[in-house]
Amino acid sequence: MVRAEKDLPWVEKYRPRTVDDVASQDEVVSVLKKCLQSGDLPHLLFFGPPGTGKTSTILALARDLYGNEFRQKVLELNASDERGISVIREKVKNFSQMTANQGKIRYRIVILDEADSMTRDAQTALRRTMEKYTKTTRFCLICNYVTKIIPPLNSRCSKFRFRPLPTDVLVNKLDEICTKENVNFRGSDDLKFLIELAEGDMRRAVTLLQSAHRISAEKITREDIRNIAGVIPDNVVEQIYTEPVLDRLTKRMRDFVREGYSGDQLLTQLLQMIIADERIEDTKRAALLEKLAIVEHRMKDGASELISLQDLAATIVSSH
């Protein structure tokens, strides 16, 4: 059954097909193009924040290299596949042992997506494999944080940093999608607002746009986008930040949890508010920020959202 083009998520539908299509990232693209011309490729390590085009670039590159044979010559593994040490030993080894002697490109590509969530053991197992099969295989590791890749792997690859995409590039891309999909959400102001919410993450921006489009067919308002992104209305955050009485604030936190808002979203928005606030003394600001960090850590550990937020409330009140 062929999947209808229409049902594809836009993120997949509008992935760049060739290296030339990759938005921005000029340095990376120019180096990769040289590689393409000479037909020779080093091991690659891509790193950068989410939604900057790392996976898209390597897929586009592979497509340029192999054309139709793309499927047979590329092995894509990511965090959801079983990826312990045994898989690296078996699957990757088997794949790399096969020589690729048809065609003019004499190597295959193994893409290890989200490599920073691989265990240390698996990474160590990769060291030898990488060297041994250089003749037949090139590896491409993709990660968010280069520090989570062990140094021996690090030194075996040429590293490429992916910068966050500049806003105007994002606006152009999104506008293009809007035109093609007939989305009624135009004007660079609105798009800029969307990008701000997505924190410069292209994938998130596109997903948000598609969700909004599904829900309100005619006209997408900023309010819709806010709702979908789960952003807390500014006045709610404002009220929490400026409440001077502890009792009222602890109660407000109870209501806040009842409303079903997400706690870490509140922390993010509070953080922006605290930083932008010019009236607050530096020492108090520091105390608040430290508390934010503690509360965030505790909530991620699984502590009760209610108690953690009330703890934060006590600090907020004492900073007035």
Binding site: R203, R204, G230, V257
Partner: peptide, 21 residues
């Protein structure tokens, strides 16, 4: 109950529906 403990990668792949009390 709360999206705080859901990793961002999953949140960005879903359409979030908040059901307030």
């Amino acid at each position: 109950n709360s999206t705080t403990k859901v990793i961002p990668a999953i949140r960005s792949r879903c359409l979030g529906i908040r059901v307030p009390a």
